[in-house]
């Protein structure tokens, strides 16, 4: 008997007018897996994430979560099922403090003292203590990314989608984020979109490559990264 994938898409397609952002994608991720998703600009990675999280309703095809079809459900319902996302443009509450941001996320599934305890833990883990009472809108880009990561973690998802988590980070922050991703992966499945190849090498096990809305290659990191077609699309050449 085969096990049911955590997330599975079948013939998933998204058209924007004439633009075919995602075309007939069959994709699956297992429980606990860490998957990297790479591909050139405009390949359809963010659009793919938007369909997984209910921000976009697919033109065709379907998304399944642990075997249940979820496409067409409301974003908050999908979040409650256990799909968390850190978006490409940080999505936080700029007018609230870091602490207030985290409190909101923790308060969804918890009550009373448990909320405070979870928030405290997240502040430690993400090293946000010195900035906990500052407005998130006033924080540096890297710090806002971590606040957002905290928001995602505190909702206790089963799988976390990270859309370019290291974008705009300093080298130190990037290293720290890579460590964090491995740490998170001990308890959560992850799908990570990144352009930074050094970062991908640090974290990658299995990689899926998107190109022009389709899956170009998929497999273990070492094989995918040495694939000629992958180099070609990244260098702007098109595979024949």
């Amino acid at each position: 008997m085969t096990t049911v994938p955590l997330i599975e898409t079948r013939q998933l397609t998204m058209n924007f007018g004439g633009v075919q952002a995602v075309q007939n994608v069959d994709f699956s991720v297992a429980e606990g897996e860490l998957r990297c998703l790479i591909g050139p600009n405009g390949a359809g990675k963010s659009t793919f994430f938007k369909m997984l999280t209910g921000q976009l309703v697919p033109t065709a095809g379907e998304v399944r979560f642990r075997g249940r079809p979820i496409s067409g459900r409301q974003p908050h319902e999908i979040a409650r099922l256990g799909i968390g996302i850190k978006t490409q443009v940080p999505s936080v509450f700029d007018g609230l403090t870091a602490h207030e941001n985290l409190w909101l996320a923790a308060s969804r599934g918890k009550r009373g003292r448990a909320i405070d305890r979870a928030v405290d833990e997240a502040i430690e883990r993400l090293m946000l203590r010195p900035i906990a009472d500052r407005l998130v809108g006033q924080l540096a880009h890297g710090q806002r990314q971590w606040v957002e990561l905290g928001l995602v973690l505190l909702t206790e998802p089963v799988v976390i989608l990270l859309d370019e988590p290291a974008a705009g980070m300093t080298d130190d922050e990037t290293t720290r984020t890579a460590e964090l991703i491995h740490d998170i992966n001990r308890t959560h499945a992850l799908i990570v979109v990144e352009h930074d190849m050094a970062f991908i090498r640090k974290i990658a096990r299995a990689i899926t490559v998107f190109d022009r809305g389709k899956i170009l290659v998929e497999g273990p990191a070492h094989r995918v990264l040495s694939d000629r077609r992958v180099r070609d699309v990244y260098l702007g050449k098109r595979a024949a």
Partner: peptide, 15 residues
Amino acid sequence: AIRENERRVEFIGFD
């Protein structure tokens, strides 16, 4: 929070 960022509120799981 919805006034601040409706999308994130939904990602957290509130309607």
